[in-house]
Amino acid sequence: MEVDKGKGEAEETRKVAEADRDTVTLKSSDGKLFEVSKEAAARLSTVLAGMIAGGSIDDNGTDLKQIGSEALENVVDYCNKHANSIPSAALISSSISFNTAPFKEPEEWERKFVDRLSHDALFDLVEAANFLGMERLLDVTCHKISEMMKGKSPDQIREVFNIKNDYTKEELEEIRQELAWAFYDD
């Protein structure tokens, strides 16, 4: 029991140390470590906010097994940029589910941030944002992907998403007839 108690105390000390730091360390699926401002992480990610509040942040790198190093680097980069450039009021993103709900347009720097990403990196980032509960980043990445998809034909979409066309020729013809108008330009 003594041993256990000792361990508990060590845990306590470590937690205190952790609480004093103003950054948290995140560990990607492939073991790379990234530092991010604790304030920004808590503000931008509901999942990280929960981990920080619940004390489940590991000083030696909190394991994020679902996120690869490239995506995590982008997440951290985004948090740091965000911390520097945006007043927190701008973060309150609309989650109203009306189909007419206006989406907050990405800021100029957010646009640039996602524009420089490769195709794969963008899709990895959208998943990471979703996993970490980063509503604003999810908004920005989804916006970028939707812009890429706009005006594309079903063939082009199949290629991007690696989808097999499982319609029969007749079925497809029938749908195309019904939705002929949708095949004019966006």
């Binding site: 079903p154 979409i157 989808i163």
Partner: peptide
């Protein structure tokens, strides 16, 4: 609507 043609 157009993307309904992508797949089932």
């Amino acid at each position: 609507c157009r993307f309904k043609c992508v797949s089932r």
